[in-house]
């Protein structure tokens, strides 16, 4: 007899953890859409945010003050990156910018550890991980909380992009940089704003992931989990990042439970990449990515 209730439980657990992947992926999408840069430093920013927050809290700062201070630090970081890295490299090929963000990721990581040390910190954001019992299916309270936070963040971004003029500027720059210059948009300002937004996403993701895994060096490796999400959803679609995250989360957990035993378990770590690779062969621009149509 197949245990559907268990399947449902695994599926829901997978979807909810997928939301956490989406959260990281959205940080990538924001920057990729508007500047065509795959920001490898997103993971380092995440670590930096979480580490700053947790260190402040451990030094006796209240939750709210620490959050505000970290937010301020992330905003400063976003503006600094635009000034110090993006502006001098404007009009360089994407691979140059990618390498720059790779270097940046190590610098940010190094700075984070220089500043706050290398120990592992526990992070308690006040949500206990006691499962809910919904009709016999157990759902993690923490996962639910994380999903709610991620969901509202996405909703906020969507409203912002659709209804504010700054949001429209973001979309315009993402659509065509030359045209954006032609109408007199100040690209540096837009980029600084985008990196700030990505910093805010990194902060939220850092806190949630930090609470789950502990705040430590390996937190910056969460980016590696975001990559299959991006491949699946397309690098330039926020909706894609969400759906991609959900798919990857669900696939991972289901594969681990139902396919894992065939391989002796432990496939959760790489099942996502198999899925991403398979999809690349069929749809190179992802499920939601913009297909490039070029006249030949």
């Amino acid at each position: 007899m197949f245990d559907y209730q268990f399947l449902l439980e695994v599926l829901i657990g997978g979807l909810l953890s997928g939301v956490m992947y989406s959260l990281v992926a959205i940080g990538f999408v924001l920057i990729y859409k508007t500047s065509g840069v795959l920001n490898f430093a997103q993971g380092a920013m995440l670590l930096f945010a979480a580490l700053t927050f947790v260190s402040l809290v451990e030094r006796g700062t209240s939750f709210v003050v620490a959050l505000a201070a970290t937010l301020a630090v992330m905003i400063a970081l976003g503006i600094a990156v635009e000034r110090a890295v993006l502006r001098p490299l404007v009009n360089q090929p994407p691979i140059t910018l990618f390498m720059a963000t790779l270097g940046l990721s190590y610098i940010i990581e190094g700075a984070a550890q220089l500043l706050w040390g290398t120990q592992v910190h526990g992070l308690d954001i006040g949500v206990s991980d006691i499962p809910f019992d919904v009709g016999g299916v157990f759902i993690s309270r923490f996962d639910l909380f994380a999903a709610a936070v991620a969901g509202s963040l996405v909703a906020l971004f969507t409203l912002f992009f659709r209804y504010t003029r700054t949001g429209l500027s973001f979309r315009a720059v993402a659509d065509d940089q030359f045209a954006a210059l032609a109408v007199g948009l100040r690209l540096p300002r837009v980029w600084a704003a985008v990196w700030t937004a990505a910093g805010i996403v990194a902060l939220v993701a850092g806190l949630l992931w930090g609470a789950r895994l502990g705040v430590q060096f390996s937190l910056s490796l969460v980016v590696l989990k975001a990559l299959p999400v991006l491949v699946l959803g397309g690098f330039d679609s926020i909706a894609g990042a969400i759906v991609g995250g959900l798919l990857i989360g669900a696939t991972e957990k289901l594969a681990e439970v139902y396919v894992g035993p065939l391989f002796g378990g432990g496939i959760e770590a790489w099942a996502a990449y198999v899925v991403a690779l398979a999809l690349l062969l069929v749809r190179p621009s992802g499920l939601f990515g913009q297909k490039l149509v070029e006249r030949v």
Binding site: L168, R171, A172, A174, D175, D176, F178, A179, V183
Partner: peptide, 15 residues
């Protein structure tokens, strides 16, 4: 130098 992915209205608004 239009924003090909935006609506006509948004394009004009960008002016």
């Amino acid at each position: 130098a239009l924003f090909k992915g935006l609506s006509v209205f948004d394009n004009v608004l960008m002016g």
